[in-house]
Design a protein around this nucleic acid. Structure first.
Lengths: 339, 339
DNA sequence: CTGAAAGCGCTTACAG
DNA sequence: CTGAAAGCGCTTACAG
């Protein structure tokens, strides 16, 4: 670190004690106006920036927030982080951000690192909240946190999310209402993603309600959106699904490309819907039908809840925010006759 | 902050001094194996996480990097940050990230905050490097930094970027080669963006080279991608441009939507090209022709350069990385006859 | 209103 | 190999 001015430098230049410098600059207690002026002048001349390490160590507050997300390249996370940052800035907090690539080991390591930096609280999105060792450790640490997107089922943890099951059910019901009878799902690995499991549950619920059997359910890895191999055979030929529900928008975009390559037209041959509501989906042609999560607002809400906790409020129950169904050209009536 | 275990707690439990705890845990000097085992056991039982504030204050190194970007919602920035994070993680650095919304005041305030946190270095993208007060202040602070995307012309500052002028020239030359004679530009405000200015210079260079007069040049604000009003009149009617170069991809996507609303077909009536190479551009139909910047690699390179500086290397000259032209359906031959 | 002093949690010469 | 002590840059009772 470059050698920056310390409070001692300012005190010397102003001809006062460091205690006085601290008091003047923090502006809490009254000070002699001429002393204050001298201090301020010295601080300005030296471009004094109080060292937050010193302050943090003393007052045991860092005004730093930790953010843990799978990846910044998914706009749904970039947007929630944008909300967190905006709210944090308003409250005078800085934000330490770590990306995990959906890797449990990295989740753990980054939580350790964040805690070591003594973040006052964390906003966290993990791959699978119910079986996360990192989260269990976080619980033991006593540092307050809020989950975003994850809504654990087996444990009661503070979270801001949408009702994934209900939302998935709404999309799939919309498909059924459009005459689709063979509906498949492309999903992130259930073992690795609580959201993928929950959205699958909603998918099943809608089908059960309508008395329909599920179409093919294909699990894919997060980091492999190339969708090669067995993908094509399940989606072509007679008896193929006429609609595909994808567990997130990034997956849906990849699926649309793959279907195009298979020579299938969207939505004439096959309809597609996603989940998340990333902005780019509505720029596509056909535009992507999807569930819109209020990503930015979720980030803001998570930060506000955290702030309340830091101010002494008791943990709040999970906050479920409303989702909306965004209609799009990718979702149309079932082809007739059925393929 | 929750009350976490301190080195004193560990020392007490292991029955040794805090100096020994420090030595064992930092594993630098040899220690008695049985003492070491006791210390490690105590640390594990207490889930001891060394307080980085204490360590940082003492050794005057925080292992924290500051990142300043306009916004995380533009994938070109999210991607470069992804590269920074990956490289930082490998080197054991954490990352404090601040977004500025292209606002000079916020740039200044966030730089102050980052410096206060004693980041060891910064990776910075500002709206306009040549007239940034924040950057001037950064220079005075002595804290090393690397610019990304900005390539100042009036000042010599460490930077990782592509040659914006050359790249813009290549795109516009490609338009000319396709028979376009009336080529317009939609650009972020020149007064607010060095990149917009540089790309405009490349646009002009290509036209001059071909002996063509420029078509309409429309400046728009970063935060207003709605493109209302006078936008339509300049782009319709006889004598309208047959190709539009947009100063970045986000703008190009907005322009494509607006052209669609004006009833113009892309590329039959009008061609469009962007700048940045965000992944979503190639998912659009027609796909977006654009200049691809190696965003992630730029972020990684910036971090590596910073690390070299922190290890004592002298400042390196600006690094210009190669760009590529991505062909796309949005750029086609000029219509004949000319409108 | 101001200063001297203690102490936050670490690391690291300096002794032993 | 280990410990006592100093000190990094702050804030804040405690005196005066």
């Amino acid at each position: 670190m470059a050698r920056l001015a310390t409070i001692r430098d300012v005190a010397a230049r102003a001809g006062v004690s460091i205690a006085t410098v601290s008091r003047v600059l923090n502006g809490d207690v009254p000070a002699n106006p001429v002393t204050a002026a001298k201090v301020r002048a010295a601080a300005a001349e030296l471009e004094f920036r109080p060292n937050r390490l010193g302050r943090g160590l003393k007052i045991a507050r860092t005004r730093v927030l930790g953010v843990l997300i799978p990846s910044l390249s998914n706009p749904v996370f970039a947007d929630s982080v944008g909300g967190i940052q905006a709210a944090a800035r308003r409250a005078g907090y800085s934000v330490l951000i770590a990306a995990t690539g959906y890797d449990a080991e990295r989740e753990d390591a980054e939580i350790e690192s964040l805690l070591s930096h003594r973040v006052e609280g964390l906003v966290v999105t993990v791959a699978d909240a119910d079986r996360s060792a990192a989260l269990a450790k976080l619980d033991r640490s006593g540092t307050p946190y809020e989950l975003v997107y994850n809504l654990p089922e087996a444990t009661c943890r503070p979270a801001v999310a949408v009702d994934n099951i209900a939302a998935a059910r709404v999309v799939v019901s919309a498909m059924i209402a459009l005459g689709h009878r063979r509906i498949g799902m492309i999903a992130g690995r259930f073992l690795a993603s609580d959201r993928s499991r929950q959205r699958h549950a909603g998918f099943m619920a809608a089908l059960n309600e309508a008395g329909l059997p599920p179409g093919p359910v294909i699990e894919v890895a997060f980091d492999d959106l190339r969708l090669g191999g067995g993908f094509g055979s399940a989606l072509t030929g007679s008896g193929r699904p006429t609609a595909l529900f994808c567990s997130n928008d990034l997956l849906a975009l990849a699926v649309m490309g793959a279907l195009h390559d298979l020579g299938l037209r969207i939505p004439d041959d096959v309809s597609v819907a996603g989940f998340d509501g990333i902005g780019f989906g509505s720029l596509l042609r056909p535009s992507l039908a999807t569930v819109v999560q209020p990503a930015r607002a979720m980030g803001e809400a998570a930060f506000e809840r955290l702030l309340a906790r830091l101010d002494g409020a008791p943990p709040a129950p999970p906050l479920t925010l409303p989702f909306t169904l965004r209609h799009g050209g990718s979702l149309g009536p079932a082809p007739s006759p059925q393929p």
